[in-house]
Design a binder for these strands. Structure first.
Length: 430
DNA sequence: CGCATTTGACCTGCGC
DNA sequence: GCGCAGGTCAAATGCG
Protein backbone atom coordinates (compact mmCIF):
# COMPACT_ATOMS: atom_id res chain seq x y z
CA UNK A 1 0.00 0.00 0.00
CA UNK A 2 2.76 2.36 0.91
CA UNK A 3 4.71 1.37 -2.14
CA UNK A 4 1.66 1.92 -4.29
CA UNK A 5 1.19 5.37 -2.81
CA UNK A 6 4.79 6.26 -3.50
CA UNK A 7 4.50 4.93 -7.02
CA UNK A 8 1.41 6.96 -7.64
CA UNK A 9 3.08 9.99 -6.23
CA UNK A 10 5.93 9.46 -8.65
CA UNK A 11 3.46 8.94 -11.43
CA UNK A 12 1.76 12.23 -10.69
CA UNK A 13 5.05 14.02 -10.29
CA UNK A 14 6.36 12.55 -13.50
CA UNK A 15 3.23 13.55 -15.27
CA UNK A 16 3.98 17.09 -14.23
CA UNK A 17 7.13 17.13 -16.29
CA UNK A 18 6.66 19.44 -19.17
CA UNK A 19 3.44 20.72 -17.77
CA UNK A 20 3.25 24.47 -17.83
CA UNK A 21 1.93 25.93 -14.67
CA UNK A 22 0.29 29.31 -14.65
CA UNK A 23 2.90 30.76 -12.37
CA UNK A 24 5.69 29.90 -14.76
CA UNK A 25 4.71 32.85 -16.84
CA UNK A 26 5.29 35.05 -13.86
CA UNK A 27 8.51 33.68 -12.53
CA UNK A 28 10.07 37.10 -12.18
CA UNK A 29 7.95 37.94 -9.25
CA UNK A 30 7.79 34.76 -7.25
CA UNK A 31 9.53 31.45 -6.75
CA UNK A 32 7.27 28.55 -6.05
CA UNK A 33 7.73 25.44 -4.10
CA UNK A 34 8.07 22.41 -6.27
CA UNK A 35 7.91 24.34 -9.48
CA UNK A 36 9.04 22.28 -12.44
CA UNK A 37 10.75 25.38 -13.77
CA UNK A 38 12.91 25.55 -10.68
CA UNK A 39 14.25 22.11 -9.94
CA UNK A 40 16.38 23.36 -7.13
CA UNK A 41 14.68 22.27 -4.01
CA UNK A 42 13.53 24.98 -1.65
CA UNK A 43 13.15 23.89 1.89
CA UNK A 44 12.53 27.19 3.62
CA UNK A 45 11.94 30.73 2.48
CA UNK A 46 13.76 33.80 3.67
CA UNK A 47 11.03 36.37 3.44
CA UNK A 48 13.18 39.10 4.86
CA UNK A 49 16.33 38.83 2.92
CA UNK A 50 18.48 41.90 2.85
CA UNK A 51 19.31 41.25 -0.74
CA UNK A 52 16.94 43.62 -2.45
CA UNK A 53 18.09 42.77 -5.91
CA UNK A 54 16.72 39.31 -5.66
CA UNK A 55 13.18 38.11 -5.52
CA UNK A 56 11.09 38.66 -2.53
CA UNK A 57 11.35 35.03 -1.59
CA UNK A 58 14.79 33.51 -1.58
CA UNK A 59 15.67 29.89 -1.17
CA UNK A 60 17.96 29.03 1.67
CA UNK A 61 20.71 27.13 -0.10
CA UNK A 62 22.37 26.01 3.10
CA UNK A 63 19.28 24.15 4.17
CA UNK A 64 19.08 22.68 0.73
CA UNK A 65 22.56 21.23 1.09
CA UNK A 66 21.84 19.79 4.47
CA UNK A 67 18.82 17.95 3.24
CA UNK A 68 19.93 17.03 -0.20
CA UNK A 69 19.96 13.34 0.59
CA UNK A 70 16.32 13.57 1.67
CA UNK A 71 15.27 15.08 -1.61
CA UNK A 72 12.21 12.98 -2.42
CA UNK A 73 10.97 12.80 1.11
CA UNK A 74 11.19 16.52 1.65
CA UNK A 75 9.52 17.24 -1.64
CA UNK A 76 6.60 15.21 -0.48
CA UNK A 77 6.58 17.11 2.77
CA UNK A 78 6.65 20.41 0.97
CA UNK A 79 3.73 19.39 -1.19
CA UNK A 80 1.94 18.45 1.97
CA UNK A 81 2.63 21.88 3.40
CA UNK A 82 1.19 23.44 0.29
CA UNK A 83 -2.02 21.53 0.76
CA UNK A 84 -2.25 22.25 4.46
CA UNK A 85 -2.24 25.96 3.91
CA UNK A 86 -0.66 29.14 5.02
CA UNK A 87 -0.53 28.54 8.75
CA UNK A 88 2.27 26.07 8.54
CA UNK A 89 4.13 28.25 6.14
CA UNK A 90 3.87 31.12 8.56
CA UNK A 91 5.24 28.97 11.34
CA UNK A 92 8.06 27.87 9.09
CA UNK A 93 8.95 31.40 8.30
CA UNK A 94 9.03 32.29 11.96
CA UNK A 95 11.59 29.61 12.53
CA UNK A 96 13.59 30.99 9.63
CA UNK A 97 14.65 33.97 11.57
CA UNK A 98 11.79 36.40 12.03
CA UNK A 99 12.42 38.18 15.27
CA UNK A 100 9.26 40.18 15.31
CA UNK A 101 9.01 43.07 12.88
CA UNK A 102 7.08 46.23 12.63
CA UNK A 103 3.49 46.67 11.48
CA UNK A 104 4.81 47.39 8.00
CA UNK A 105 6.63 44.13 7.97
CA UNK A 106 3.53 42.29 9.15
CA UNK A 107 1.41 43.86 6.45
CA UNK A 108 3.99 43.02 3.85
CA UNK A 109 4.16 39.50 5.12
CA UNK A 110 0.41 39.17 4.92
CA UNK A 111 0.37 40.31 1.31
CA UNK A 112 3.08 37.83 0.43
CA UNK A 113 1.25 35.00 2.13
CA UNK A 114 -1.98 35.82 0.40
CA UNK A 115 -0.27 35.84 -2.95
CA UNK A 116 1.40 32.60 -2.04
CA UNK A 117 -1.90 31.07 -1.09
CA UNK A 118 -3.54 32.07 -4.34
CA UNK A 119 -0.78 30.58 -6.41
CA UNK A 120 -0.86 27.39 -4.39
CA UNK A 121 -4.55 27.11 -4.99
CA UNK A 122 -3.96 27.34 -8.71
CA UNK A 123 -1.26 24.74 -8.49
CA UNK A 124 -3.54 22.42 -6.59
CA UNK A 125 -6.16 22.88 -9.26
CA UNK A 126 -3.64 21.83 -11.87
CA UNK A 127 -2.67 18.78 -9.86
CA UNK A 128 -6.27 17.82 -9.36
CA UNK A 129 -6.94 18.18 -13.06
CA UNK A 130 -4.02 15.95 -13.92
CA UNK A 131 -5.06 13.30 -11.45
CA UNK A 132 -8.53 13.33 -12.97
CA UNK A 133 -7.08 12.87 -16.42
CA UNK A 134 -4.94 9.96 -15.31
CA UNK A 135 -7.92 8.40 -13.62
CA UNK A 136 -10.11 8.76 -16.70
CA UNK A 137 -7.44 7.21 -18.89
CA UNK A 138 -7.19 4.32 -16.49
CA UNK A 139 -10.93 3.74 -16.52
CA UNK A 140 -10.93 3.82 -20.30
CA UNK A 141 -8.15 1.24 -20.47
CA UNK A 142 -9.88 -0.86 -17.84
CA UNK A 143 -13.07 -1.01 -19.84
CA UNK A 144 -11.18 -1.73 -23.01
CA UNK A 145 -9.47 -4.74 -21.44
CA UNK A 146 -12.76 -5.84 -19.92
CA UNK A 147 -14.56 -5.77 -23.26
CA UNK A 148 -11.68 -7.59 -24.87
CA UNK A 149 -11.93 -10.40 -22.35
CA UNK A 150 -15.70 -10.65 -22.59
CA UNK A 151 -15.38 -11.29 -26.31
CA UNK A 152 -12.74 -13.93 -25.78
CA UNK A 153 -13.88 -16.04 -22.86
CA UNK A 154 -13.65 -19.48 -24.39
CA UNK A 155 -9.99 -20.08 -23.71
CA UNK A 156 -8.83 -17.16 -21.70
CA UNK A 157 -9.05 -18.08 -18.06
CA UNK A 158 -5.35 -17.49 -17.74
CA UNK A 159 -5.69 -14.20 -19.58
CA UNK A 160 -8.32 -13.01 -17.19
CA UNK A 161 -6.20 -13.94 -14.23
CA UNK A 162 -3.16 -12.21 -15.65
CA UNK A 163 -5.05 -9.07 -16.50
CA UNK A 164 -6.79 -9.00 -13.16
CA UNK A 165 -3.53 -9.44 -11.30
CA UNK A 166 -1.94 -6.71 -13.35
CA UNK A 167 -4.90 -4.49 -12.72
CA UNK A 168 -4.54 -4.97 -8.99
CA UNK A 169 -0.89 -4.08 -9.13
CA UNK A 170 -1.44 -0.98 -11.16
CA UNK A 171 -4.51 0.20 -9.34
CA UNK A 172 -4.11 3.19 -7.15
CA UNK A 173 -6.92 5.32 -5.90
CA UNK A 174 -6.02 8.31 -3.76
CA UNK A 175 -7.86 8.45 -0.51
CA UNK A 176 -9.45 11.76 -1.30
CA UNK A 177 -10.90 10.37 -4.50
CA UNK A 178 -12.61 7.31 -3.09
CA UNK A 179 -15.96 8.97 -2.97
CA UNK A 180 -15.80 9.64 -6.65
CA UNK A 181 -18.45 7.76 -8.58
CA UNK A 182 -15.91 6.90 -11.24
CA UNK A 183 -13.82 5.23 -8.63
CA UNK A 184 -16.83 3.13 -7.74
CA UNK A 185 -16.92 2.01 -11.31
CA UNK A 186 -13.49 0.56 -10.78
CA UNK A 187 -14.85 -1.59 -8.00
CA UNK A 188 -17.64 -2.69 -10.28
CA UNK A 189 -15.11 -3.56 -12.92
CA UNK A 190 -13.24 -5.62 -10.39
CA UNK A 191 -16.41 -7.43 -9.42
CA UNK A 192 -17.12 -8.01 -13.07
CA UNK A 193 -13.75 -9.63 -13.49
CA UNK A 194 -14.59 -11.92 -10.61
CA UNK A 195 -17.94 -12.82 -12.06
CA UNK A 196 -16.44 -13.64 -15.43
CA UNK A 197 -13.77 -15.83 -13.94
CA UNK A 198 -16.17 -17.52 -11.54
CA UNK A 199 -18.63 -18.08 -14.33
CA UNK A 200 -16.06 -19.82 -16.44
CA UNK A 201 -14.89 -21.88 -13.51
CA UNK A 202 -18.41 -22.83 -12.56
CA UNK A 203 -19.30 -23.87 -16.06
CA UNK A 204 -16.13 -25.90 -16.28
CA UNK A 205 -17.05 -27.71 -13.12
CA UNK A 206 -20.68 -28.26 -14.12
CA UNK A 207 -19.98 -30.06 -17.34
CA UNK A 208 -20.33 -33.79 -16.73
CA UNK A 209 -19.32 -37.00 -18.37
CA UNK A 210 -21.11 -40.16 -17.31
CA UNK A 211 -19.82 -43.69 -17.86
CA UNK A 212 -22.17 -46.64 -17.67
CA UNK A 213 -20.46 -49.96 -17.12
CA UNK A 214 -21.24 -53.34 -15.67
CA UNK A 215 -19.64 -53.94 -12.33
CA UNK A 216 -20.47 -55.79 -9.16
CA UNK A 217 -18.11 -53.60 -7.18
CA UNK A 218 -19.42 -50.55 -5.43
CA UNK A 219 -17.12 -48.30 -7.40
CA UNK A 220 -14.90 -48.72 -10.41
CA UNK A 221 -11.25 -47.91 -10.00
CA UNK A 222 -10.29 -45.25 -12.49
CA UNK A 223 -6.80 -44.47 -11.28
CA UNK A 224 -7.71 -41.58 -9.02
CA UNK A 225 -8.12 -41.42 -5.26
CA UNK A 226 -11.59 -40.53 -4.07
CA UNK A 227 -13.17 -39.72 -0.76
CA UNK A 228 -16.83 -40.22 -0.16
CA UNK A 229 -18.53 -37.13 1.19
CA UNK A 230 -22.17 -37.92 0.89
CA UNK A 231 -24.89 -40.33 -0.11
CA UNK A 232 -28.45 -39.66 -1.11
CA UNK A 233 -31.47 -41.54 -2.24
CA UNK A 234 -32.33 -40.28 -5.68
CA UNK A 235 -35.90 -40.08 -6.77
CA UNK A 236 -37.02 -42.97 -8.93
CA UNK A 237 -34.10 -45.16 -8.03
CA UNK A 238 -34.03 -47.45 -4.98
CA UNK A 239 -30.25 -47.51 -5.16
CA UNK A 240 -28.48 -44.74 -3.28
CA UNK A 241 -26.27 -42.27 -5.07
CA UNK A 242 -22.81 -41.81 -3.62
CA UNK A 243 -20.81 -38.61 -3.92
CA UNK A 244 -17.04 -38.63 -4.11
CA UNK A 245 -14.41 -35.94 -4.44
CA UNK A 246 -10.87 -36.34 -5.73
CA UNK A 247 -8.26 -36.42 -2.97
CA UNK A 248 -5.15 -36.74 -5.07
CA UNK A 249 -4.45 -33.06 -4.56
CA UNK A 250 -5.66 -30.46 -2.14
CA UNK A 251 -8.38 -28.39 -3.69
CA UNK A 252 -8.93 -30.58 -6.71
CA UNK A 253 -12.42 -29.66 -7.97
CA UNK A 254 -13.19 -32.99 -9.58
CA UNK A 255 -16.14 -34.91 -8.16
CA UNK A 256 -18.02 -37.95 -9.21
CA UNK A 257 -21.31 -39.62 -8.48
CA UNK A 258 -21.76 -43.36 -8.45
CA UNK A 259 -25.17 -44.96 -8.70
CA UNK A 260 -26.56 -48.27 -9.82
CA UNK A 261 -29.10 -48.39 -12.58
CA UNK A 262 -32.64 -48.93 -11.38
CA UNK A 263 -33.49 -51.21 -14.30
CA UNK A 264 -30.29 -53.21 -14.22
CA UNK A 265 -28.56 -53.42 -10.87
CA UNK A 266 -25.42 -54.73 -12.49
CA UNK A 267 -24.89 -51.47 -14.32
CA UNK A 268 -22.93 -48.84 -12.50
CA UNK A 269 -23.21 -45.23 -13.63
CA UNK A 270 -20.23 -43.04 -12.76
CA UNK A 271 -20.60 -39.34 -13.47
CA UNK A 272 -17.47 -37.18 -13.52
CA UNK A 273 -17.54 -33.46 -13.04
CA UNK A 274 -14.67 -30.99 -13.29
CA UNK A 275 -11.05 -31.04 -14.36
CA UNK A 276 -8.14 -32.23 -12.26
CA UNK A 277 -5.70 -29.58 -11.12
CA UNK A 278 -2.82 -31.99 -10.64
CA UNK A 279 -0.83 -34.58 -12.58
CA UNK A 280 -2.56 -37.89 -13.07
CA UNK A 281 -1.20 -41.41 -13.11
CA UNK A 282 -1.18 -43.18 -16.43
CA UNK A 283 -4.15 -45.29 -15.43
CA UNK A 284 -6.25 -42.20 -14.87
CA UNK A 285 -5.18 -40.21 -17.90
CA UNK A 286 -7.63 -41.67 -20.40
CA UNK A 287 -10.74 -41.06 -18.38
CA UNK A 288 -9.58 -37.66 -17.23
CA UNK A 289 -8.72 -36.55 -20.73
CA UNK A 290 -12.11 -37.68 -21.92
CA UNK A 291 -13.97 -35.71 -19.30
CA UNK A 292 -11.75 -32.72 -19.88
CA UNK A 293 -12.25 -32.84 -23.62
CA UNK A 294 -15.99 -33.22 -23.17
CA UNK A 295 -16.05 -30.26 -20.85
CA UNK A 296 -14.10 -28.18 -23.34
CA UNK A 297 -16.40 -29.18 -26.14
CA UNK A 298 -19.52 -28.33 -24.22
CA UNK A 299 -18.09 -24.97 -23.29
CA UNK A 300 -16.99 -24.07 -26.77
CA UNK A 301 -20.35 -25.05 -28.21
CA UNK A 302 -21.27 -26.98 -31.32
CA UNK A 303 -19.16 -26.67 -34.39
CA UNK A 304 -20.42 -26.36 -37.86
CA UNK A 305 -22.24 -29.38 -39.12
CA UNK A 306 -20.63 -29.06 -42.51
CA UNK A 307 -17.67 -31.17 -41.49
CA UNK A 308 -19.40 -33.99 -39.72
CA UNK A 309 -17.30 -37.07 -39.55
CA UNK A 310 -18.48 -40.24 -41.12
CA UNK A 311 -18.12 -42.01 -37.86
CA UNK A 312 -21.56 -41.16 -36.64
CA UNK A 313 -23.50 -43.20 -39.19
CA UNK A 314 -20.90 -45.93 -39.31
CA UNK A 315 -20.21 -46.08 -35.58
CA UNK A 316 -23.38 -45.01 -33.87
CA UNK A 317 -22.09 -46.61 -30.70
CA UNK A 318 -19.42 -43.93 -30.55
CA UNK A 319 -21.78 -41.03 -30.69
CA UNK A 320 -21.92 -39.22 -27.38
CA UNK A 321 -25.12 -37.32 -26.84
CA UNK A 322 -25.84 -34.54 -24.46
CA UNK A 323 -28.09 -35.42 -21.62
CA UNK A 324 -31.40 -33.68 -21.74
CA UNK A 325 -32.71 -34.64 -18.35
CA UNK A 326 -29.66 -33.92 -16.28
CA UNK A 327 -29.54 -30.46 -14.70
CA UNK A 328 -26.15 -29.83 -16.32
CA UNK A 329 -24.74 -30.65 -19.74
CA UNK A 330 -23.79 -34.32 -19.61
CA UNK A 331 -22.24 -36.76 -22.03
CA UNK A 332 -22.93 -40.40 -21.32
CA UNK A 333 -20.73 -43.23 -22.52
CA UNK A 334 -22.68 -46.45 -22.31
CA UNK A 335 -20.41 -49.47 -22.10
CA UNK A 336 -23.11 -52.00 -21.30
CA UNK A 337 -25.01 -52.82 -24.48
CA UNK A 338 -24.35 -56.41 -25.70
CA UNK A 339 -25.04 -55.42 -29.29
CA UNK A 340 -21.45 -54.26 -29.42
CA UNK A 341 -20.52 -57.67 -30.73
CA UNK A 342 -21.62 -56.46 -34.08
CA UNK A 343 -18.96 -53.79 -34.00
CA UNK A 344 -16.37 -55.18 -31.71
CA UNK A 345 -15.17 -58.53 -32.85
CA UNK A 346 -13.01 -59.49 -29.95
CA UNK A 347 -15.29 -60.76 -27.23
CA UNK A 348 -15.19 -60.93 -24.39
CA UNK A 349 -13.78 -57.53 -23.51
CA UNK A 350 -12.57 -57.36 -19.98
CA UNK A 351 -12.96 -54.18 -18.09
CA UNK A 352 -9.54 -53.00 -16.98
CA UNK A 353 -10.90 -51.31 -13.92
CA UNK A 354 -10.06 -53.11 -10.75
CA UNK A 355 -13.37 -54.68 -10.13
CA UNK A 356 -13.52 -58.23 -8.92
CA UNK A 357 -15.86 -59.27 -11.67
CA UNK A 358 -14.78 -59.03 -15.28
CA UNK A 359 -17.21 -56.99 -17.24
CA UNK A 360 -18.23 -57.67 -20.75
CA UNK A 361 -17.87 -54.57 -22.79
CA UNK A 362 -21.02 -54.02 -24.61
CA UNK A 363 -22.16 -51.74 -27.27
CA UNK A 364 -20.02 -48.64 -26.94
CA UNK A 365 -22.77 -46.20 -27.41
CA UNK A 366 -23.80 -42.96 -25.92
CA UNK A 367 -27.28 -42.21 -24.94
CA UNK A 368 -29.28 -39.77 -23.04
CA UNK A 369 -28.67 -39.92 -19.36
CA UNK A 370 -32.18 -40.98 -18.48
CA UNK A 371 -31.39 -44.39 -17.11
CA UNK A 372 -32.35 -43.45 -13.61
CA UNK A 373 -35.76 -42.00 -14.12
CA UNK A 374 -36.69 -42.66 -17.72
CA UNK A 375 -37.91 -39.14 -18.24
CA UNK A 376 -37.65 -37.35 -21.52
CA UNK A 377 -38.18 -33.84 -22.69
CA UNK A 378 -38.14 -31.64 -25.72
CA UNK A 379 -34.58 -30.76 -24.91
CA UNK A 380 -33.58 -34.22 -26.05
CA UNK A 381 -34.62 -33.42 -29.58
CA UNK A 382 -32.80 -30.14 -29.69
CA UNK A 383 -29.75 -31.56 -28.00
CA UNK A 384 -29.54 -34.41 -30.46
CA UNK A 385 -28.39 -32.04 -33.15
CA UNK A 386 -26.00 -30.42 -30.73
CA UNK A 387 -24.60 -33.80 -29.86
CA UNK A 388 -24.09 -34.57 -33.49
CA UNK A 389 -21.98 -31.46 -33.74
CA UNK A 390 -20.33 -32.46 -30.53
CA UNK A 391 -18.92 -35.63 -32.05
CA UNK A 392 -17.35 -33.72 -34.88
CA UNK A 393 -14.73 -32.29 -32.59
CA UNK A 394 -11.49 -34.18 -33.23
CA UNK A 395 -10.01 -33.41 -29.84
CA UNK A 396 -12.95 -34.81 -27.97
CA UNK A 397 -13.12 -37.88 -30.14
CA UNK A 398 -9.42 -38.52 -29.75
CA UNK A 399 -9.78 -38.39 -26.01
CA UNK A 400 -12.87 -40.56 -26.19
CA UNK A 401 -11.04 -43.17 -28.17
CA UNK A 402 -8.21 -43.11 -25.68
CA UNK A 403 -10.63 -43.67 -22.85
CA UNK A 404 -12.44 -46.45 -24.64
CA UNK A 405 -9.14 -47.98 -25.54
CA UNK A 406 -8.18 -48.10 -21.92
CA UNK A 407 -11.57 -49.40 -20.94
CA UNK A 408 -11.56 -52.31 -23.31
CA UNK A 409 -7.93 -53.06 -22.60
CA UNK A 410 -7.11 -53.51 -26.21
CA UNK A 411 -5.14 -50.41 -26.91
CA UNK A 412 -2.06 -51.89 -28.45
CA UNK A 413 -0.21 -48.69 -28.98
CA UNK A 414 -1.29 -47.01 -32.14
CA UNK A 415 -3.70 -49.45 -33.64
CA UNK A 416 -6.58 -47.45 -32.40
CA UNK A 417 -6.49 -44.57 -34.76
CA UNK A 418 -8.41 -41.44 -34.97
CA UNK A 419 -7.21 -38.64 -37.13
CA UNK A 420 -8.61 -35.28 -37.92
CA UNK A 421 -8.32 -35.81 -41.62
CA UNK A 422 -10.00 -39.17 -41.67
CA UNK A 423 -12.64 -38.06 -39.18
CA UNK A 424 -13.16 -41.70 -38.40
CA UNK A 425 -12.31 -44.15 -35.70
CA UNK A 426 -10.64 -47.41 -36.41
CA UNK A 427 -10.62 -49.31 -33.18
CA UNK A 428 -10.03 -52.69 -34.75
CA UNK A 429 -8.22 -52.55 -38.04
CA UNK A 430 -8.44 -55.68 -40.16
C1' DC B 1 -5.46 -42.20 17.47
C1' DG B 2 -5.99 -40.82 12.87
C1' DC B 3 -8.45 -41.32 8.87
C1' DA B 4 -12.40 -42.70 6.14
C1' DT B 5 -17.25 -43.42 6.09
C1' DT B 6 -21.94 -42.63 7.51
C1' DT B 7 -25.87 -39.92 7.99
C1' DG B 8 -28.89 -36.29 9.26
C1' DA B 9 -29.09 -31.36 8.68
C1' DC B 10 -28.65 -27.62 5.82
C1' DC B 11 -28.43 -24.96 1.48
C1' DT B 12 -29.88 -23.90 -3.16
C1' DG B 13 -32.43 -24.00 -7.34
C1' DC B 14 -36.65 -24.92 -9.57
C1' DG B 15 -41.49 -25.74 -10.46
C1' DC B 16 -46.12 -24.94 -9.02
C1' DG C 1 -44.33 -18.62 -0.71
C1' DC C 2 -44.01 -23.47 -0.38
C1' DG C 3 -42.50 -28.01 -1.27
C1' DC C 4 -39.38 -31.02 -3.54
C1' DA C 5 -35.08 -32.79 -5.14
C1' DG C 6 -30.19 -32.50 -5.75
C1' DG C 7 -26.03 -31.44 -3.66
C1' DT C 8 -22.94 -30.37 0.27
C1' DC C 9 -21.47 -30.01 5.03
C1' DA C 10 -20.03 -31.60 9.32
C1' DA C 11 -20.60 -34.17 13.56
C1' DA C 12 -20.87 -38.88 14.80
C1' DT C 13 -19.29 -43.36 14.08
C1' DG C 14 -16.42 -47.19 12.57
C1' DC C 15 -12.18 -49.33 11.49
C1' DG C 16 -7.30 -50.46 11.07
Amino acid sequence: MEAAAIRCENMVLNSLDGHKFPHETNSNTNTYIGSPADHSLINEMDFFSTNTSSNIIQPVKKEQQHHHHHHDQQQLQLNLNVIVGSNNLYATKRTAGCNGGTKTQSAHKLVVLQAELENMKRENECLRSMVTQVKEKYIYLQRYIEDYNIHDTTNNIKTINVVKEDKKQSLFVPLDLKNDSRVDSLDNADAKFDSIKDGVDASMRRVRVAVRARSEASMISDGCQWRKYGQKMAKGNPCPRAYYRCTMAIGCPVRKQVQRCAQDRSVLTTTYEGTHNHPLPQTAMAMASTTSAAASMLLSGPKSSSDHPILSPHYPHLTPILSATAPFPTVTLDLTNPKSDHYLRQPPFHFPFSTNTPMVLGHVTSQLNNATDGRSSDREVTNAATAADFTSDPHFMAALVAAIGSVIGNNNGGDNVYTKNDTSINLYPP
